[in-house]
């Protein structure tokens, strides 16, 4: 289990905290979604968790052992998929994976099988510099799995991927979870977070503003609403009614009685709407 307690980080040491008093824990075999707009402090937290930034204040423990006490072997348990696809352009996809496989002290997965899993078999022996951004993104994702990690950090793993490929990646992530892997997922994609995460945390201006399962967040912060399409003098109009508001409730009832309704859908609040309600800003 990964536990983070009162984590704060100040890059310049002048009291301008990039993250402040962030606490959460991720049980083994679960997926934790970290959501927030650019500059919210997501990367700072992730970089501290994977050892790229020193731990200044607070505590981070992996199965009870502080990150301060971890040695190089700690990285044998870690897989990191970076948002920007950082691969050796002059090496082929296969060579990239083979090289990184050689860096770990633990048994590693077959590079060709991993490439096959992310639909890169045909490009396995082409130089990575000739890959599209989406292909490189998949290669970086495959690389994060090469050492069969117990703790996986995924930064925007489906960014720039077509829906079919994104679905494949999501399927692999869920399979890793089933295998007992603990996953820390950073994403802007609410749909991805909704699909994958057991727990999501909202980070805004360096502070956690909410943390729970997507369903509980929707129940706690969402508003019951219906989206209605209705006819009006030959035109089709669309309107959303929030049923907990008296005025919306009255208008909706009037519309039902007028028998002009063509379609009607119930709606639940999206994670993005909840984030906006909590912070007054969007996730983009």
């Amino acid at each position: 289990m990964l536990a983070v307690k009162n984590l704060s980080h100040d890059y310049e040491g002048k009291g301008n905290y990039a993250v402040r008093n962030v606490s959460f824990s991720i049980p083994e075999g679960t997926i934790f979604g970290f959501l927030g707009p650019s500059g919210a402090g997501k990367s700072t937290v992730q970089n501290i968790l994977i050892g790229l930034l020193p731990l200044q204040q607070g505590e981070v423990t992996y199965t009870g052992k502080s990150i301060r006490d971890q040695d190089a072997k700690f990285f044998n348990q870690l897989g990191v998929s970076f948002e920007h696809p950082n691969v050796y352009g002059r090496l082929t996809g296969y060579e990239n994976l083979k090289y990184f496989a050689g860096l770990f002290d633990v048994p590693t997965l077959d590079p060709l099988k991993l490439l096959e899993a992310v639909n890169l078999t045909e490009a396995a022996h082409r130089k990575a510099s000739a890959y599209s951004k989406g292909m490189r993104q998949r290669l970086v994702f495959a690389r994060s799995l090469i050492n069969n990690p117990k703790m996986l950090f995924l930064d925007e793993p489906t960014s720039g991927l077509d829906p079919n490929t994104a679905a494949i990646i999501k399927e692999i992530i869920l399979q890793k979870k089933k295998d007992g892997c603990t996953i820390f997922l950073t994403t802007h994609s609410m749909a991805t977070a909704d699909d994958l995460c057991d727990t999501v945390a909202f980070l805004n201006e360096g502070k956690m503003v909410a943390m729970d399962s997507p369903r509980n967040l929707k129940l706690a912060y969402g508003e019951r609403s219906v989206r209605v399409e209705y006819g009006d003098n030959g035109r089709v109009l669309e309107q959303v009614f929030f049923l907990d508001k008296a005025e919306d409730h009255r208008l909706f009832t009037d519309l039902v009685q007028s028998q002009r309704i063509q379609t009607i859908h119930t709606q639940e609040a999206t994670l993005e709407q909840i984030f906006m309600r909590l912070t007054g800003r969007g996730l983009a």
Binding site: G51, A72, N86, V87, F100, L103
Partner: peptide, 18 residues
């Protein structure tokens, strides 16, 4: 410089390479 430009050193950093 190529490794810096490609940011592959970030990936190397989270391995036991050293």
């Amino acid at each position: 410089f190529q490794e810096k430009q490609e940011a592959t050193l970030r990936a190397y950093r989270v391995t036991p390479g050293g």
